[in-house]
Design a protein around this nucleic acid. Sequence first.
DNA 1: CAGACGCGTAACCGATGAGTTACGCTTCTG
DNA 2: CAGAAGCGTAACTCATCGGTTACGCGTCTG
Lengths: 126, 126
Amino acid sequence: MSYASVVDAAQAIAEPVRRDILVLLLHEGSVPAGEIARRFSISRPAISRHLRVLRESGLVRAETTGRQRLYVLDPAPLAELAGWLAQFTSDPAWQQRLDALETEVYRTRRERARPDPAAATEQETA
Amino acid sequence: MSYASVVDAAQAIAEPVRRDILVLLLHEGSVPAGEIARRFSISRPAISRHLRVLRESGLVRAETTGRQRLYVLDPAPLAELAGWLAQFTSDPAWQQRLDALETEVYRTRRERARPDPAAATEQETA
DNA sequence: CAGACGCGTAACCGATGAGTTACGCTTCTG
DNA sequence: CAGAAGCGTAACTCATCGGTTACGCGTCTG
């Protein structure tokens, strides 16, 4: 398990516009660059560079047909990222440890309703 | 359709150090801030700010005990992010469209394994 | 109680990133 | 074949980010 492309995928995903582009491609399948740009309020070069980021991180592939560039989604890196996330969401170890630790913070989180006697968890960063 | 915290989670995940912190907390359960800082080569204030980002995105919770701040993982936002990713990895629609399109780019992708650009910030240093 | 300890924050700085406009290259078209 | 259409890139600006050092504040301890 190398999780090599997790780095790039996470970086790519961090940008709202890029996420929207991915969703767009998911729904529409294959969309030319200009058409993608037309869907957003930012300029076409900005979209072009977002597409480059997505391309370089393997999330998207481009097929040149004539003077158009059709973009298609490639969810493989996203699957890898999902695999990386799985170690957190599926592994029960963290919960066991938290149970063993029996911290106040966790009980609060878990019950979500009881009055907080100490309230020492949420203070800084006013 | 909320995916509200996906934004923040993706942002938090985009940073290699923050990913490593999450993995560290996954394995160790509850770790004080200074101990976390000691595991990395960067300065303690830098870690402190990474921890703030993780806190504000809900990925981590802090419990103050005396003069220590114990950090624990909260995988809930990661689960949400995984849910967002699921629309790409589980939905078969994209593949149908790609099959229908039958593009050269896709056949290329399918036949030969794609080269993996090595960028191994992944394996935690702990 | 003075001082060490633990941790967060402020102030500052170089690097990165996302947006813009201007431009160039290739491909279609009248 | 000239010009429009479609895209990408270069050059630039501004905001954000991640790192550092200096500092402040609450907590433990001899």
